[in-house]
Computed example of a mutant assay.
Amino acid sequence: MNILSLNVGKPKTANFNGKEVETGFYKESVSGHTHLAKLNFEGDGQADLKHHGGVDKAVCVYPYEHYSYWEQDLKRELPIAAFGENLTVIGMLEEDVHIGDVFKIGEAVLQISQPRQPCYKIAGRHDVKDLTLRVQNTGYTGFYCRVLEEGMVEPDSTIKRTSVHPEKVSVAFANDIMYHDKNNMDAIKKILSVDALSDSWRTRFVTKLEQLTNNEK
């Protein structure tokens, strides 16, 4: 596991399908050490703080292995941070990491909190109307991390997994239940047993479980 690129960017105004929106999606690689605080990297920011950012979504991580798939699918070359991620990484695919896993990256300590839930800005950034749905359907979403310990991170910092969550609920598994196998009550209960699950995904799964339980009555 290693970092291919460390990316930050402040919110800016962009034109998505004829509409001006504020977005922190556009990020650029940094070459020097960067401080990671509880809410984000130095120099980074989010525009829509209702749906992005916060303690549970301080760092967005995306596997570089998916870039070749998207370049073929979209028929174009993609720049680094094409998915608005802070860390473009190698060796951390969604099926290989779990919600609650803890990683040491440079001086900082991060914990996976949820899969990255793609929004319309991915589609707007690449001018592909159904790209948000495509990302969901493939499961190539990346994931979010919370910061357990702040510290400096270098673009070439090593990534070391220091602990695996005992429930071993992979990011890929959580994605599958959220978007595909939506009525699997046992799977939802398993995901909810992960204490490290973000508040937003916990709320969604609790609501879904209540609906399924009521339907059985």
Score class of each variant (00 low, 15 high):
198 S>D: 12
14 A>R: 09
147 V>D: 00
55 V>Y: 08
181 D>H: 15
200 S>F: 11
67 Y>T: 14
192 L>D: 05
164 V>S: 04
53 G>R: 02
127 D>F: 02
192 L>V: 13
58 A>G: 15
167 E>Q: 07
5 S>R: 02
204 R>Q: 15
162 T>K: 03
194 V>N: 01
199 D>W: 08
146 R>Q: 09
90 I>R: 06
37 A>W: 11
5 S>L: 01
151 G>Q: 02
87 L>S: 10
193 S>K: 14
79 P>Q: 13
33 H>W: 08
13 T>S: 13
57 K>H: 09
21 V>F: 10
105 I>N: 03
206 V>E: 15
42 E>R: 15
16 F>E: 05
46 Q>C: 13
154 E>L: 07
175 N>Y: 03
134 R>W: 06
27 K>E: 08
217 K>R: 13
171 V>K: 00
77 E>V: 15
168 K>G: 06
6 L>Q: 02
39 L>S: 13
175 N>P: 04
39 L>A: 11
80 I>W: 07
70 W>A: 01
104 K>F: 09
210 E>M: 15
44 D>L: 13
198 S>W: 04
1 M>E: 02
24 G>H: 00
12 K>L: 05
215 N>R: 13
8 V>I: 15
217 K>G: 14
3 I>S: 02
200 S>R: 15
84 G>R: 10
91 G>V: 11
68 S>P: 03
162 T>L: 10
176 D>E: 14
164 V>F: 01
161 R>N: 02
99 I>H: 04
113 S>F: 03
168 K>Q: 10
108 A>G: 08
122 I>W: 04
14 A>C: 09
43 G>T: 11
42 E>N: 13
77 E>T: 15
27 K>G: 05
208 K>C: 12
215 N>E: 14
30 V>C: 03
12 K>W: 04
175 N>I: 04
60 C>G: 03
74 L>E: 00
15 N>I: 06
48 D>L: 11
92 M>R: 04
